[in-house]
Amino acid sequence: MAGVAWHYVLKFIITGDSAVGKSSLLVRLTDQRFLANPDPTLGVEFGSKLITIPEENKVVKLQCWDTAGTESFRSITRSYYRGAAGCLLVYDVTSRQSFVNARSWLADVREHADPHLTCILVGNKIDLCTDDAGPGRRTREVPSEEAEQWAQEEGLLFVEASARSGENVEAAFERATRDILDKIRRGVFDDDRSPGVKLLKPSNPNLSLEADARQGRCC
């Protein structure tokens, strides 16, 4: 991906119970077969994705950070939150428990992440509760309205998605990204102290929307 231009690098974290499909969302977003070809030890950064926000005329590189598999190492995963600009808080719409537990994941995020961080609540696996889900069909245990209401109370963005079908996956990241760009415009991130937001020239002390698109170096 060398030579691709981007305006901002935003660090995202993806959190929630195990088995809610966090890594599947990331796989779907980045369309990467993580270990299909390269050796995992080669040091290729995965979880990166360039997205374009047309009305802002901005290319944004998302660096997604997934706690998948390490949920039980809670004290260590907490340190991942540090410096994130965005967060996907994921639950499974067919698992009440995963929605209930989202509260405690949110508490962790609140405790350890930047207070300006944008958090989007994502109800995953909606494909499982449609009529054409086939034999794997499952009952929805979390109504959209309830999740949406909770998201509103907590000031979270909200979307329902399906990593399997791809529905709303990119949209979830885009909504969060728009929100972050909006915060940048309003000056919420107006210093270099938010490591989750990087201009393409990291040494630039002033985050400015007028920054030109230059050749970003992609690892």
């Binding site: 499909g21 890594s23 599947s24 796989v27 990467q32 077969r33 993580f34 270990l35 299909a36 995992p40 995965f46 997934d66 706690t67 998948a68 598999g69 390490t70 190492f73 260590i76």
Partner: peptide, 14 residues
């Protein structure tokens, strides 16, 4: 934890 992450991605990503 890293083995667990690698397994998760390998399983979900392939």
């Amino acid at each position: 934890g890293l083995y667990l992450t690698d397994v998760t991605f390998c399983r979900e990503g392939n």
